[in-house]
Nucleic acid binder design. Structure first.
Lengths: 217, 217
DNA sequence: GTATAATGTTAGACTAAACTAACAAATTTT
DNA sequence: AAAATTTGTTAGTTTAGTCTAACATTATAC
């Protein structure tokens, strides 16, 4: 049995190792807002349970079992976010907090019913992929808007590290998933972009924003 | 702040004191599946927090604050059950387990949205009243079917202590809330009843069943 | 109304998950 | 390559929620 606390460690490990490949105790503990010794002893515990491969002073790695467990929690989180937006009328900036709690509910029926009512979606409201029942996550490789060149026309496919503030900012600019963006110019000095989309002929996006917008061609 | 564990104690106290008026440590601990000393020290803790009025060797009583807290958890539980049945297509025998977990989610928005989508229902799928946002619970005083006399025609309004088995039994006999029952006879020996309803001209209900079916005239 | 049974309380121990303080190893800087 | 910094580990403490064993009080039976 995996406790709620353990589930949160696994989820953190999955998301950090997806971002940067290698995960250390320091990074993990900062991400979870706990102290290093706490994370350290939890890693030993998860290692006993064959969820994490732990060797002193070496980077942490999820075992296949651990990766699967973590992906199933992510699945529950993302299905919940989708359900809250599509079936309950919440805004995409409101759903993270609630999903953070709902993801720990033990009931396959509950999440399978959500999945069914939603028509088996492949992506959540922020464009992130929803792992399947076996914990397989299809990684569609989007580009960051920041990596695109002047003149390109691209479609907004997902947003990265979508916190409350960032999503409210996007709402205020009518930047929704699916919007087609044309890159009018790129400022060499600060890498900010001027783009056109929808009814907005020119909108300035900072480099930070461009890094967090993922697009497809 | 009230922990998940504390919430479960409060809920148990509310339901036991609604049933029988007085609640003892022994009964409370049996109901929660824990040992008496554990319940005892929790009562002291809840007393510190002004949620329970605790005096050694005297029956336990919720304070007004405690009663309100408990009723708000019951509200969340019953709204959830209603949502699962009405909006997600679960059977009334499936929803208790899930609601038992969902009731601990901290988000007013989440439950208010459910309430709104459901059209502000007054009763849950088992006929139990849903407390309002202030923790006020309207007690409609139904009778047990067992208390009715031969010849009476009554409407099934709620079911008591509705566990999985009991609800499956009711499903198998097509006994749903709102069904009109006519009491054809009462067996003096074991207090079982023969009743007519829907397309069933005569159906035998044991005394145990009759005690748990609540009806209105 | 005393003996017995049931219920309630106290004291002390355990586990999970957190912490701080001190120490050890690895990495980076100079 | 030695010093300094960052990262990781060990040891011991804390809190919430549980337990058992022993004792105390209240209720019940005879």
């Amino acid at each position: 049995m995996v406790s709620l606390t353990e589930e949160n460690y696994l989820k953190a490990l999955l998301s950090l190792s997806a971002d940067k490949g290698e995960v250390g105790i320091n990074e993990l503990s900062r991400h979870l807002g706990i102290k290093m010794p706490t994370a350290n002893s939890m890693m030993k515990k998860l290692s006993e349970k064959n969820l994490v491969h732990y060797v002193s002073y070496k980077p942490l790695r999820l075992t296949e079992k651990g990766r699967r467990e973590a992906a199933l929690i992510v699945r529950k989180h993302r299905l919940t976010e989708m359900f809250l937006v599509e079936k309950m009328g919440f805004g995409w900036e409101q759903v993270h907090e609630i999903a953070e709690q709902v993801e720990h509910i033990h009931s396959n029926d509950f999440f399978e019913k959500m999945d069914e009512l939603l028509g088996f979606p492949k992506f959540d409201p922020h464009g992130s992929p929803i792992p399947d029942k076996n914990g397989k996550m299809e990684w569609v490789s989007y580009e960051a808007l920041a990596a695109c060149e002047k003149g390109a026309t691209v479609k907004l496919a997902a947003v990265l590290n979508a916190g409350d503030d960032f999503l409210k900012y996007l709402n205020s600019r009518e930047l929704k998933l699916g919007v087609k963006l044309k890159i009018l110019s790129i400022e060499p000095f600060d890498k900010s972009m001027v783009v056109a989309y929808g009814k907005r002929p020119q909108e300035v996006l900072s480099a930070l924003v461009c890094e967090r917008l993922l697009v497809s061609r």
